[in-house]
Design a protein around this nucleic acid. Structure first.
Length: 152
DNA sequence: GCCAACGTTGGC
DNA sequence: GCCAACGTTGGC
């Protein structure tokens, strides 16, 4: 079982949306490194839900991977902003995962707090200029974060 | 809204 | 295969 961190802008899709939907396909990722991490995910892995582009940014909850190697349907949808004309149905470029809501934190674990507790080597999200939207989190780091939060 | 960081594209 | 131009991310 591995831990991950996945970013989303709450104005696009936030923890409240996942709580309502219970499950979601994590679509729209168009970065190869992020995609490769999602390809390596396994059922039962847990992921921190990170709110980006908001005040303050930070981790707001936990999700669980319930299905792997999901073809991102938006790549074939010309109406979607994530449409990829170069991706063909017989060899899709973009795979993702299905995630299930696990819990929402009583309080956001802010980026500022993460910076105070972890070095950029320990936790990639605190690296300056990091634009990666899916990244691994070491178990020891994940457990330190989880020991400091309460679920709603 | 600004802009630094940085990934991608495409001409050569 | 280099790299300038361009587009996007995301903190502030």
């Amino acid at each position: 079982m591995n831990y991950w961190l996945m970013k989303s802008e709450p104005s696009v899709y936030g923890i409240a949306d996942l709580k309502r939907d219970r499950q979601t396909i994590w679509d729209g990722v168009r970065n190869y490194q992020a995609r490769n991490f999602m390809r390596s995910m396994q059922v039962g892995d847990r992921a921190f839900f990170y709110h980006s582009n908001t005040t303050p940014p930070g981790i707001v909850g936990m999700m669980q991977v319930v299905e792997t190697n999901v073809i991102d349907p938006t790549q074939f949808d010309p109406q979607s902003e994530y449409y990829d004309a170069k991706s063909k149905p017989d060899s899709p470029r973009w795979q993702t995962v299905r995630l299930e809501f696990e819990k929402e934190f009583a309080e956001i674990f802010t980026l500022d707090l993460l910076r105070q507790q972890f070095t950029p080597d320990e936790l990639w999200v605190v690296r300056q200029g990091n634009r990666l939207s899916v990244m691994p989190v070491e178990e020891a780091i994940a457990l330190r974060i989880l020991s400091q939060v309460q679920a709603i």
